[in-house]
Design a protein around this nucleic acid. Structure first.
Lengths: 232, 232
DNA sequence: GACTTTACTTACAGATAGGTCAGTAAAGCA
DNA sequence: TGCTTTACTGACCTATCTGTAAGTAAAGTC
């Protein structure tokens, strides 16, 4: 359930708080987590801060002690998620991997982060017009992070196509397909039996080699295979 | 911009209306269309009936002349979309097609309906917890339609796997992938240059044959190809 | 014990939403 | 010329939401 750097609360336990101690440690993080869960399930406008506060054993104005507005709460969820996801994906970049291996590693990294920070990611994606809700400064930073998150995927695709390991396809279209496959917030739940990494591996296998069996492929491997042959 | 059977308004132009005539013909349909556009862009809870009414040159209570509640408006959007989409997909079933051709035809049919009834479909999908919003009776009917809409896809997959033309894979997982690819309401706009059918053809090609080039495939076609070989 | 800082709570203000009710305007019909 | 039916409008009620202001409880500091 960690938000940002979790050990931060325990990292300096000796450092004294100045005033009255909060009812729970890391209230800011707890509020963000609860708000993310509410936004992910009910949507940004529909979820009420009253419910979030009640869930935490607080009253609504208590939230305004930590955040100036509801929009600001959402902004922090979106920004910290974008930062975290981008960093996690970039950590999976490895030049020694094959094109296919690199693509799989990236997809698994994305799925892993989605699983471990499920509600935060889900809230950021569900409030998908999220970027529109941010203020100008955050919006630009968010878009930059989003592009940075996609960059390793893009580079892998371009590299693979240049080496002839991947089909030549429109890269932007393909990126859209990939992220559409990866955004599984509609049905994936972190408490289910299926792990996110398994799902990502499966999605990657389908993405790489497709649905058609190898035998059916060799049968078609002569002339106008993919676009004309089985039209009728 | 047709909702349901468009010519219905012109079909019986001689049939007299009894009371005061509406400001525009087919007000019900116009309201549904405008509401769908509002729901699709702002979400169900966030969109206000006042804006919908204003857009049509009406006042808010006028909508209550045609529909008892806001929820009921949404229910009609969802139900008529589910009915229309299912019928359109079923019309694309053709036993004479190959497995690949049938899958492509189904995907194109889905994309076509999404394009021509863009806002209605988009509203029904965006209010994705749509099913939860419906009353018991509608909910069951909606779920039945949804299953009926997926059935031809499912049957094509099973048939293709049985004939050995498709890889053996978990059918439910694969169906999820397919519909995840087909739900393009996030970025697809019907006024763009790209037609929905082109997009569906492209998605189907990727789905069938994957990203990996044929040359790379034959190189790997010896032992543990897809899962172990390029792991590291 | 006074003072400061933090972490809240209770009470309230303002905006906006969905929905109702009573009345009115425009048509056909008798 | 009434009567009925349809298609609305204006005014109003209630609920709920964000955000604010003022006061209080619990800690450390001097």
């Amino acid at each position: 359930m960690g938000y940002g750097a979790k050990p931060c609360a325990d990292e300096r336990p000796t450092e004294r708080a100045l005033g009255r101690p909060p009812k729970q440690p890391d209230q800011r993080g707890r509020i963000l987590e609860a708000a993310a869960r509410a936004i992910a399930t009910d949507g940004y406008e529909q979820c009420s801060l009253a419910r979030v506060a009640r869930e935490l054993g607080l009253t609504r104005p208590a939230l305004y002690h930590y955040f100036p507005t509801k929009q600001r709460i959402f902004a922090e969820i979106a920004m910290s998620t974008a930062r975290g996801m981008t960093a996690h994906v970039h950590a999976a970049v490895d030049d020694t991997l094959s094109t296919a291996g690199q693509l799989r590693a990236l997809m698994i990294a994305y799925a892993e982060y989605l699983e471990t920070h499920y509600w935060m990611v889900s809230a950021a994606l569900t409030g998908a017009r999220c970027s529109e809700r941010l203020e100008r400064g955050d919006r630009e930073a968010f878009e930059t992070l989003r592009r940075a998150c996609m960059a390793p995927f893009e580079q892998t695709l371009r590299h693979g196509m240049a080496k002839g390991e991947l089909r030549s396809r429109d890269v932007d279209d393909t990126l859209r397909f990939i992220f559409q496959l990866l955004d599984v917030t509609r049905w994936f739940r972190p408490d289910g039996t299926k792990r996110a990494a398994d799902f990502a591996r499966d999605a990657c296998a389908l993405l790489l080699d497709g649905l058609r069996s190898d035998t059916a492929k060799t049968l078609l491997n002569d002339d106008a295979t993919y676009h004309e042959r089985d039209q009728r």
